[in-house]
């Protein structure tokens, strides 16, 4: 373990790749290592890229990262999440295809992850992967979410800046996406802006933002991009930097990160509790309790109390 820790501190990519795998596989060792290296985290700035399928998230990420590499020569990690099949447990992780130019860039690390049954647009281990990339010295970390539906809200709890990518002509998604998802955006990117319907989409987003004038000091900007022809990428990156500056100056970055950490702790606790509940011996007790409830010996509320007592006692 000492070796791995040293390798990671030295920025070894293979060690990082392996550690991410261990975290994905829920191996205890991974968490022991992360404990030891926790001091080395918190330096990277984390950017979430989310949006519906076909909105061009990967291509946009590719272009943003190239811009960062060219202009600022900062190191960038990319985590691309794709859905795991609920039937087979397998996954095709294909986001890399659109970033292959970056694969030989020494200052870039790309990792694809399957959701492995986790809902919310990320995988359970995405958070840990962020930490690993942070530890090996990545200055920016991009997370590309699954992008399949409307429940991609995990990203705000992981990223410092969240970019919501939308495209004109995907139908009435604005209406559909509105509930819950629009609020997560710190920045809107209207991609494929060389197409008809762009101005209408921008107007719709503006209207929505005006309708929800919660007293936030940050009004999400709307940036028109065309990732394929590399238009608007500089502007989008500038918007991200402006948001970063804003968060730092207002100290909101700290507030946000503390809140995210709180969520993370809660998650770990939940995980632990769930694993206690699903332990073999508890499993048997649970079964017995269920039988008792069925026979009306006790009610489900009392049964739950019993279970909690067992866990507490255990």
């Amino acid at each position: 373990m000492v070796d791995i820790i040293e390798s990671l501190k030295a920025g070894d990519k293979r060690a990082a790749a392996r550690l991410i795998t261990k975290a994905e596989n829920n191996e205890k060792e991974a968490f022991e290592i992360l404990k030891k290296l926790y001091d080395n985290t918190g330096n990277a700035y984390v950017i979430g890229i989310t949006g519906p399928p076909g909105s061009g998230k990967s291509t946009l990420t590719d272009k943003l990262v190239k811009e960062i590499r060219k202009k600022y020569n900062k190191k960038v990690g990319i985590i691309a999440v794709d859905p795991t099949s609920p039937f087979t447990g397998g996954a095709i992780l294909g986001d890399r295809i659109r970033m292959q130019d970056l694969s030989l860039d020494e200052g870039v690390f790309i990792r694809s992850m399957g959701t492995r049954g986790h809902l919310g647009g990320l995988s359970k281990a995405t958070n840990y992967a962020v930490k690993v990339l942070d530890i090996i010295g990545m200055d920016y970390i991009f997370i590309e979410t699954v992008g399949v539906g409307q429940s991609e809200v995990d990203i705000v709890k992981t990223a410092d800046t969240t970019v919501l990518v939308m495209v004109p002509g995907l139908g009435d998604d604005i209406q559909a996406i509105k509930a819950g998802i629009m609020e997560i955006a710190d920045i809107f990117a209207v991609n494929k802006a060389d197409r008809g319907g762009t101005d209408r989409l921008v107007a719709e987003i503006e209207m929505m933002l005006d309708l929800n004038p919660e007293n936030t000091p940050w009004k999400p900007p709307i940036v028109k991009t065309s990732a394929v022809s590399n238009k608007g990428v500089t502007e989008l990156l500038d918007a991200i930097k402006t948001h970063k500056k804003f968060l730092k100056e207002t100290d909101l970055l700290k507030t946000k990160r503390i809140s995210n950490i709180e969520t993370e702790i809660l998650k770990i606790v939940k995980e632990e509790l769930m694993s206690l509940i699903t332990q073999k011996e508890n499993h048997d007790k649970r079964k017995r309790l269920a039988v008792d409830v069925y026979h009306k010996k006790i009610d489900p509320f009392t049964a739950a109390d019993c279970l909690i007592k067992i866990i507490k006692g255990g």
Binding site: T59, G94, I97, R98, S229
Partner: peptide
Amino acid sequence: FGEYKPSVSI
């Protein structure tokens, strides 16, 4: 003209 980048889904 630039180069074509495929969008692949399997």
